[in-house]
Design a protein around this nucleic acid. Sequence first.
DNA 1: TTAATTGATACTAAATCAGTATCAGTTAGG
DNA 2: CCTAACTGATACTGATTTAGTATCAATTAA
Lengths: 157, 157
Amino acid sequence: MKVLNKNTDYAVRALLSLAGSQGVYMSAKTIATEQDIPYQFLRRLLQELIRHRLVVSREGASGGFMLKRDPDGIGLRELIEIFQGPVQVSECLFRKKLCLNRARCVLRHQILRIEQVVRDEFEKITIGSLLRDLADAGREHGTFPLNHSAPAECSHH
Amino acid sequence: MKVLNKNTDYAVRALLSLAGSQGVYMSAKTIATEQDIPYQFLRRLLQELIRHRLVVSREGASGGFMLKRDPDGIGLRELIEIFQGPVQVSECLFRKKLCLNRARCVLRHQILRIEQVVRDEFEKITIGSLLRDLADAGREHGTFPLNHSAPAECSHH
DNA sequence: TTAATTGATACTAAATCAGTATCAGTTAGG
DNA sequence: CCTAACTGATACTGATTTAGTATCAATTAA
Ligand code: FES
Ligand code: FES
């Protein structure tokens, strides 16, 4: 069960780049290089973020993208909902044969409760909090946050 | 973001049928009819459940399947892990360019923490608890649990 | 004028999901 | 001992989703 797909994954990283250099327009190319995201893929994501008013853009030469909202107000939940649809445990676990009354269904209540817990947890992780964590980690290691020459690849979990 | 796929969905319902008639062997055909699950699909799921020692089977005429473990010990988490792989938020949200030190990675800690919360929540929902909920709902409405002639379809969320 | 950039789509390959089909082996019951 | 009702195992199919690519038009700074 993988929770985050590439869309959300890349969107988070792109937003971290944008949040890391607020006030200036950053081109898709720069972000793609910085975060190692496929360029055309990223461009589609950025359009989606514009549609949802998280970022603004400027066209033409030396144009680019800029974060519009407060990084602390952008939670992982919102991003998941934009790129993967609403957090939903199951369409309906117990249809016809089992479910006796939708309105009073105990099972449905359990499912809805767990959906709420999951949503709340994702809500807590914001672009702002991630950025601060990165900065802390960077200070600890004597490097700048979003440093381009970072050590060894991480492949794990 | 849909959390449960058809495998898990059907497996839960099949296990509810088995838990509802413990001590006797129940054929795949009976379960399929009772829970409205595609027959051949269900047979594959049951084989998987046997491999994981949740149920046992008897071959031949009047053979079938029987629950082997305590329904209260079978959590949604275990079923998700059997049919959808380990609960995992993201392969790795912040590779090379961003992640400075895997072992001390703050971001990784956040991700691991949320994974734990999700796992715990699913752990709490067991076949036993669901069965009791169904029984309660049934009593409230004056029908038996797992009653075959249940009212209207439920399609929602 | 032109090179760099965004806006908007259309396209593709691979993986996953949901479901079907087939055949061999086992067993209860007549 | 036959046979119908089962499980065991596996191969196949079509639809959808995922991840990534390609293209072309419009905009703008230099
Ligand atoms: S599970 Fe959907 S109404 Fe009961
Ligand atoms: S996110 Fe994987 S090591 Fe930092």
